[in-house]
Simulated assay, not measured.
Amino acid sequence: MYRHKQKIQLPAELPPQLIVVIDTEEEFDWNAEPNPGETAVTAMDHIHRAQDIFNEYGLRPCYVVDYSIASQQRSVAPLRQFLEAGQCEIGAHLHPWVNPPLEEPFTRSNMYPGNLPADLEREKLTVLRDTIADAFGQTPVTYKAGRYGYGPNTTATLNALGFDIDLSVCPPLDARGDGGPDYRRYDAWPFWYGEAEQRILELPVTGGFVGWANGMSVPLFELAQMFRRLKAPGILSRLGAVDRLMLSPEGFTPKEHIKLTRFLYNQGVRTFTWSFHSPSVVPGHTSYVQNEQQLRAFLDAFREYFDFFFNELGGQANTPTGLKSLMEKFA
């Protein structure tokens, strides 16, 4: 999928760079079959709960918005306010089952846009790009595939539509069970890919297998998954052998965020992505935030990690487009 990869090695003395990416989307049941009728965006009434924290720390998040968000005034209004105040960037996030034209069978596999026929994937992303441009007054250049579903034709589509930053790689996700991608062999390092004259910058979701198992992490973790009833994954984690972590407040704790960041930083990684889904700012919309107590823990994790990153690690805030400009200096 990502041909002609060129890993980007940033100087060790460069302060670590943090971007925030929000999968900004409608409220739907992640475990159900795709339903084109589920397009509610009520959680966007409360997106300021997260944005207010970003403003405290001087972070300009990138809201990657899907068609449900970009086509409804209720969700466009707060984001346009942030954008006009210079407080965010806007990118594209393709959820095929709610994005015209709706021509494909509504199956779990087709929720991954890269599985669609090339012409249909391009037509849907064209509609999304143009809808975003109409709603926000600027054409997006940053893309994140819905459900991380990058496919064999996606690069050509991004090139044709003017996208030059991708955020779809999600180590260590393995979504092959319902037709999705397998990112277990990818890591958190950014890279260029594609043809030289139309290269795209990849800024992966920050995640990976952490521990001393190193090259044996994937097979060891898979073996442990076979013995989950015996709590084998937890045992490996406590032994420091391998732990599967992501830099997200959804399902991971501040202690784990810091553990992952220190591990990657010591390996030489200098770019980090804090990511989550917009419906999580309201209890009941995602499995991660079901009540007010979980909401408080969710938002508290932002501040705890940002305090560590900026104060203890000496990091700097950035954006996807800002990182692209930075990477070009070291090309």
Rank of each mutant, 00 (worst) to 15 (best):
residue 312 E to P: 10
residue 315 G to S: 06
residue 265 Y to I: 00
residue 74 R to T: 11
residue 303 R to P: 06
residue 161 L to H: 00
residue 328 E to T: 12
residue 219 P to S: 03
residue 287 S to T: 11
residue 118 A to E: 15
residue 253 T to M: 10
residue 224 A to V: 08
residue 196 A to P: 14
residue 115 N to G: 08
residue 115 N to A: 06
residue 49 R to Y: 10
residue 29 D to T: 10
residue 175 A to S: 07
residue 210 V to I: 15
residue 317 A to S: 04
residue 64 V to N: 01
residue 110 N to Y: 04
residue 309 F to R: 08
residue 256 E to G: 05
residue 98 V to D: 02
residue 230 L to R: 12
residue 14 L to K: 08
residue 123 E to Y: 01
residue 87 Q to M: 09
residue 325 S to G: 11
residue 84 E to R: 14
residue 313 L to W: 01
residue 116 L to Q: 03
residue 323 L to I: 14
residue 231 K to S: 05
residue 320 P to L: 11
residue 149 G to I: 01
residue 92 A to Y: 00
residue 18 L to T: 03
residue 75 S to K: 06
residue 103 E to Y: 07
residue 33 E to V: 08
residue 129 R to V: 06
residue 20 V to W: 13
residue 292 E to G: 10
residue 26 E to F: 09
residue 157 T to P: 07
residue 139 T to K: 09
residue 132 I to W: 03
residue 228 R to E: 14
residue 285 H to V: 02
residue 81 Q to R: 14
residue 210 V to C: 04
residue 327 M to N: 04
residue 164 D to T: 05
residue 100 P to I: 12
residue 170 C to D: 00
residue 86 G to T: 06
residue 277 H to V: 00
residue 93 H to W: 04
residue 154 T to G: 02
residue 294 Q to P: 02
residue 253 T to A: 09
residue 235 I to N: 01
residue 316 Q to E: 14
residue 28 F to W: 13
residue 170 C to M: 05
residue 60 R to M: 13
residue 18 L to D: 00
residue 61 P to T: 09
residue 156 A to C: 08
residue 234 G to H: 04
residue 5 K to C: 12
residue 127 V to N: 01
residue 203 L to V: 11
residue 73 Q to T: 15
residue 243 D to P: 05
residue 1 M to D: 13
residue 221 F to Q: 12
residue 256 E to H: 07
residue 244 R to G: 09
residue 143 Y to M: 04
residue 254 P to R: 05
residue 249 P to M: 05
residue 324 K to Y: 03
residue 191 F to H: 00
residue 108 R to K: 14
residue 297 A to T: 13
residue 103 E to F: 00
residue 273 T to C: 13
